[in-house]
Design a protein around this nucleic acid. Structure first.
Length: 592
RNA sequence: GGGGGCGUGGUCUAGCGGUUUAGGACGUCGGCCUGUCACGCCGAAGAUCGCGGGUUCAAAUCCCGUCGCUCCCGCCA
């Protein structure tokens, strides 16, 4: 019997410093790199806390040296040795432990390793699917360790902050009732009630509202949410929300809380001071200025309306559009007047993807030359007015689009983002937060020919718009808001309805009859009968915020085991087909 | 549901009708090397060019299909 299982570490690799010189230590870790000089072997040993250099010298211990020759990358070893100051000028300033090294006295190989399919280090160029298949190796990379570390710190900051603000963390069920509206549900068959299904929550929305009726007053949850929709770089079938709900509050109470939370998070995790309050922008202004409800304000290039000027010109296309109730709007592309015909055509191709006919370019050439298909149809005065409207100067290119405002604006918004990226106008070091407020309550669903909720059916209309609900519902603004960071929607919330009558009326407007409402949301409506307090909440998307803090383009980089864009897990192979026997218990038959 | 891009040793890639016995870098293996840390030097192994079909005297290269990955549109109350 060995006296001990293995040489257990007394120190972590990354924490050793010059102060430890002279001490005998035991370290455990993975072989990051072996450098065999023939008569001397260096091994970089890596654990979660960093890397330290170990030296094997044959004159001191030939047997141990022979053992070190067998080491390979990713072997797991325990090394006992003496910490020493590195000799002469062999200090390595790239390493936190670069002042010292460990002279090995004893070694135990705890496990061997196959050669990994990719090198365990930062800045590797490897196909992502391979990284996901071998995620356990990928996570060993310092960069991924750091992402997981920051994720932990962020979640801890959230818990500390909300605890300090008197919030209660409460878990809500994962197996819940399916809701046909909104995103598609992931379904879970019930064995005990064969033929019936649970759904996984798209969000804990109704439960957190019920918790307000329950008198919890301040609730939060680090909540996993599930949506069975097609994926994107920043969309996973399961993701995490910081789900928050409060009673006896108005919109600004919640925005203020969200602001303080982000400020605390950025300060504790990054040491970064966020400027508060975050700018508030109405949905209407956001659309008019940026063509999108989640503007990236790290660069300008705002949308300019020249409808009035265009109406005065002899340009027939413009006049027709304006007479038909349309608008002429555009953006200024700084220093792009030199674009070739081909480059300008590419801009048109870009907007054609979204259904526009193409852009109308105005290039401001040297000497005040107004180069555009518009030139002949406009007076010098009109040209001057257009240039003034865009605050343009020689060398700029203006891209105009004509059509209905709600058609033109989103396309210009996309063009703005595309060109902001192409022209490298975005300062990547910035964290630009803002709130978009006063969203429309409803929008008209052309396909289904009915009115839909813009946010969700439990959102309260703004009090000043209550009177429009019966007469002109599409004009009603909701007490809903989004928090936007660098052009990403990172939180969404609203003040909720807490009156049964109003709730039923809103459901009716979106086509859910009183009977249907009772059947599907009866528990909520009934709860409203028992003293529901005014309440509201917000749900920041944890993954996106972390990705932004870590400077990553995809949330996959900050999730330990993400799915690929097909919704598969490359490591485990999920989802898989299920044996008939297992399906039989559930009384389920799969159609072939 | 639709569109774009990519698929070449373990990894990243070059080649894009014949000069290819498919080139390079990293990694791997072996040899030499006592101060390396992107160690160095010498040598070696390692690829049905995703898969199937077609065009052609000739296909990694062109065409069609298919699979995989990825990005976008729709979708995501």
């Amino acid at each position: 019997m060995k006296a001990r299982a293995f040489l257990k570490r007394t120190k972590k690799c990354g924490e050793l410093r010059i102060e430890d010189v002279g001490n005998e230590v035991i370290i455990n870790g993975w072989v990051n790199k072996r450098r065999d000089l023939g008569g001397l072997i260096f091994v970089d040993l890596r654990d979660r806390f960093g890397i330290v250099q170990v030296v094997f010298n044959p004159t001191e211990n030939p047997e141990l040296f022979a053992q070190a020759e067998k080491l390979r990358s990713e072997y797991v070893v325990a090394i006992k040795g003496v910490v020493g100051k590195r000799p002469g000028d062999t200090r390595n300033s790239n390493l936190g432990t670069g002042d010292i090294e460990i002279t090995a006295r004893e070694m135990e190989i705890l496990n061997t390793s196959k050669t990994p399919p990719f090198v365990i280090k930062d800045d590797i160029k490897v196909d992502e699917s391979l990284r996901l298949k071998y995620r356990y190796l990928d996570l060993r990379r310092p960069e991924m360790l750091r992402n997981m570390y920051l994720r932990h710190k962020i979640v801890k900051a959230v818990r500390d902050f909300l605890d300090n603000e008197d919030f209660l963390e409460i878990e809500t069920p994962m197996l819940i009732r399916a809701t046909p509206e909104g995103a598609r549900d992931f379904l879970v068959p019930s064995r005990m009630s064969a033929g019936k299904f649970y759904a996984l929550p798209q969000s804990p929305q109704l439960f957190k509202q019920i918790l307000m009726v329950s008198g919890m007053e301040k609730y939060f949850q680090i909540a996993r949410c599930f949506r069975d929709e097609d994926l994107r770089a920043d969309r996973q079938p399961e993701f995490t929300q910081i789900d928050i709900e409060m009673s006896f509050v108005e919109r600004d109470d919640i925005l203020g809380l969200a602001e303080r939370m982000m400020k605390f998070m950025f300060k504790t995790v990054l040491g970064h001071d966020l400027e508060t309050p975050f700018p508030r922008l109405s949905w209407e202004d956001a659309m008019n200025r940026y063509g999108i409800d989640k503007p990236d304000t790290r660069f300008g290039m705002e949308i300019v309306d020249v409808t009035e000027i265009a109406a005065k010109t002899d340009f027939q296309v413009f006049r027709n559009v304006i007479e038909g109730g349309g608008v002429i709007k555009g953006i200024k592309l700084p220093s792009c007047a030199g674009y070739s015909r081909k480059r300008v055509d590419e801009l048109s191709e870009f907007v054609k993807k979204y259904g526009a006919h193409g852009i109308l370019p105005i290039a401001l050439k040297e000497g005040g030359n107004f180069k555009s298909p518009l030139a002949k149809a406009t007076t010098d005065e009109q040209k001057r007015e257009i240039i003034e409207a865009f605050d343009a100067k020689e060398g700029d290119l203006i891209a105009l689009l004509a059509g209905k405002a709600d058609f033109v604006l989103p396309i210009l918004g996309k063009l703005r983002l595309e060109m902001g990226n192409q022209l490298d106008l975005i300062d990547k070091s910035k964290f630009n937060f803002l709130f978009v407020i006063d969203f429309p309550m409803f929008h008209f669903n052309e396909e289904e020919n009915r009115i839909d909720s813009e946010h969700h059916p439990f959102t309260s209309p703004k009090t000043e718009d209550m009177h429009l609900i019966d007469t002109d519902p599409l004009k009603v603004k909701a007490d809903a808001y989004d928090m936007v960071l660098n052009g990403h929607e990172v939180a969404s919330g609203s003040i909720r309805i807490h009156s049964k009558d109003l709730q039923k009326k809103i459901l009716e407007i979106i086509g859910i009859s009183s009977e249907e409402a009772d059947q599907r949301f009866g528990f909520l409506l009934e709860a409203f009968d028992y003293g529901a307090p005014p309440h509201g909440g917000i749900a920041p998307g944890l993954d996106r915020i972390i990705a932004e803090i870590c400077g990553k383009n995809t949330i996959r980089e900050v999730i330990a085991f993400p799915k690929n864009t097909a919704g598969d897990c490359p490591m485990t192979g999920a989802p898989v087909e299920i044996e008939d026997e297992q399906l039989g218990v559930l009384k389920i038959k799969v159609k072939k």
